[in-house]
Simulated scan of single mutants.
Amino acid sequence: MANMNGKTVLITGGTDGLGKEVAGKLASLGSTVLVTGRDRSKGETVVRELQQEYGTNAVKLFIADFSSQEEVRHLAKEIAGRYDRLDVLINNAGLGKTEQTLTDDGYEMTFAVNYLAPFLLTHCLLPQLRAAKSSRIINVSSGYQADGELNFDDLHGRKEYDAWDAYSQSKLAIVLFTYELADQLKNTEITVNALEPGLVPGTSFARHLPWHWKFGFHVLSRLPARFVRTPKKGAETYVYLAASPEVTGITGEYFVDKQSKQSAAKSYDSELRKRLWDVSVELTGVSSNIPIQQRHRKTPEGEQSWQEKP
Rank of each mutant, 00 (worst) to 15 (best):
D104H: 13
Q128S: 10
R73L: 01
P245F: 01
A242T: 05
Q100M: 01
L150G: 08
V286R: 09
L89P: 07
T101I: 09
V113E: 11
P291S: 10
T188A: 08
E196I: 09
G30V: 02
F66S: 11
A76S: 08
L181Q: 04
V228K: 14
V140P: 00
P291T: 10
S267L: 05
L241C: 09
E282Y: 13
A265E: 13
I174W: 03
G216E: 06
F66A: 08
N187M: 08
S263M: 05
Y161C: 05
D183F: 09
F152C: 09
V59F: 04
E246R: 14
F111T: 10
N289W: 13
Q169M: 15
I11W: 03
T191L: 02
E70Q: 14
L272K: 05
T98P: 02
I137Y: 12
H296I: 14
F62Q: 01
A23D: 07
V281R: 09
P224F: 04
K232D: 12
E282H: 12
L116E: 00
L89S: 09
G55H: 13
V228P: 12
G24S: 02
G202L: 04
K186A: 06
A58P: 05
K171F: 05
L126S: 10
D278R: 15
Q52S: 14
L220P: 06
L241I: 09
R40V: 13
F111G: 11
E78S: 14
A242M: 06
E189L: 12
Y167L: 01
G285I: 00
G94Y: 08
V281T: 04
L121M: 08
D154S: 01
Q69F: 04
L18E: 01
G30N: 02
G302I: 02
H296Y: 14
P310Q: 13
L176A: 09
T15A: 07
P127E: 02
V247D: 01
N92V: 01
G216V: 11
F152T: 06
E301C: 06
Y107M: 04
R226D: 13
A225W: 09
Y268L: 11
G285T: 02
F66M: 13
E253H: 12
K186Y: 02
S270E: 13
G6N: 05
W306A: 14
K159T: 07
T230L: 05
S135M: 03
E78L: 12
V72K: 07
L172D: 03
A23N: 05
A206E: 15
